[in-house]
Each structure stands twice: as C-alpha cells, then as structure tokens.
C-alpha cells in the first residue's frame, strides 16, 4: 500500500459521496447519466465477486462493500427515489456499443479463462469506458452543474493516482498488471479534455458550459 493508492481510493470514495450528496441535497439527479451509474454498479458487482472467495485485508473488504453500497444507492436514487428529475431524454448513449466490445474483449484477453477472471477482466475494461455516457450527456446538453464537475474531477483524479500507484509498484514490488494498466491509461485519457475545462473554467469560478 502506497500513498498514491490510498489517495486514489480516497478520491474514488469522495467522488461517489459528492454525487450522492448532490442528489440528496438538491433532491434531483438532473444532469447525471443513469447509464454511467448502472455501468459503475455493474463494474463493482463483477469485480468484487472475490469477496466470496478470497480475503485480502480488512481495508480491502470494507472498501469493496462501501463502493458497492454507494453504487447501488446512486442507481436507486436515479431510477427510483428521484426518477422524476432524471433527464432521460439526454441520457441517450447506446450501452450496447460499450457492452458488446467489452464483453468480447474480456473473453479474448484475460489472465486466465475462468468465470471469475473473465468477470474481473470485464469489469476492468468496462470501468475504462463507463464514464462515456456521462461525458456524452454533458456534450449533448452543453453544460454541467459545478458539483457534477467536482464529481468528475475526483473520479478522474482517482485514475491518475492509480497510474502513479502502478509506476510505484512496478519499481518497488515488480508488480505489473498489463490489463489493469492499459485500461487505466485509456480511462485516464478520456478525462484529459474534461480536466482542461475544469482547470480553465470551474476553478476560476465559472460554470462549465461548452461553446
């Protein structure tokens, strides 16, 4: 466990909490892509099946459970509790465009051809593209609430910190997981454009709106 990993996990948790607080306080999930949140719930579900097969550490188990709970509460808020505020019209990304290639790739390129490994690989590939419906929604409406951009910032920061974590682990432990690293790099690239807008607009007190 290194500082990048811890900070990455904290950013990830913070992002999910920011999103939940935003929805809870405003009693609205306007501007949030329900499809991205369903994908994240699917990511955690397929990745954390090892909760039943292997014990890594108390930290690992507790965080996994918290992530799962947060993801499902978020989906519940969007599709049940505050579904009237959900902007279905603009959440029009076609999920099959992500799910079909990700499923195919997880069968082709994995560490071992076992159900749990394939599901783990599926979750890694899926996580790398799960934010796309959200980014698509923002590009469609042309704007995002400031709190939504904070959510995206911490989610992107988590990925960037994990890259630093892998570089650290490569040098100190000789640990290198190619599937996770390649997907992590791809995922981080998706946030670059957003990071630029966040720094040039949101941090200067302006609302994120696209020309």
């Amino acid at each position: 466990m290194n500082i990048f990993r811890i900070l990455g996990d904290v950013s990830h948790l913070l992002a999910m909490i920011i999103l939940l607080v935003k929805i809870w306080r405003s009693k609205s999930c306007a501007g949030i892509s329900g499809k991205s949140q369903i994908l994240f719930a699917l990511v955690f579900t397929t990745r954390y099946l090892d909760l039943f097969t292997i014990f890594i550490s108390v930290y690992n188990t507790v965080m996994k459970v918290i992530f799962l709970v947060c993801a499902y509460i978020t989906v519940y808020m969007i599709y049940m509790k505050f579904h009237k505020t959900f902007d279905r019209e603009h959440d029009s990304f076609r999920l099959e465009f992500l799910l079909v290639p990700v499923t195919g790739l997880s069968f082709l390129e994995n560490h071992s051809f076992t159900p749990l490994e394939i599901l783990w690989t599926f979750s890694i590939y899926l996580e790398s593209v799960a934010i796309l419906p959200q980014l698509f929604m923002i590009s469609k409406t042309g704007e995002a609430e400031t709190i939504t951009t904070h959510y995206l910032f911490f989610l992107g920061l988590y990925r960037a910190l994990y890259l630093a974590n892998w570089i650290w682990r490569y040098h100190t432990e000789n640990f290198y997981d190619q599937i996770a690293v390649v997907s992590g790099v791809v995922q981080t690239i998706f946030y670059c454009d957003f990071f630029y807008l966040y720094v040039t607009k949101v941090l200067k007190g302006k609302k994120l709106s696209l020309p």
Binding site: R5, I54, N60, F67, S112, P115, E117, W120
Partner: peptide, 10 residues
C-alpha cells in the same frame, strides 16, 4: 473457485 490471480486493488 479461487481466483488464480490475486487482485489486491480496488
């Protein structure tokens, strides 16, 4: 079934 690879990250 026990995973062959130890995935210790979140």
């Amino acid at each position: 079934i026990v995973a062959k690879t130890l995935h210790d990250e979140l």
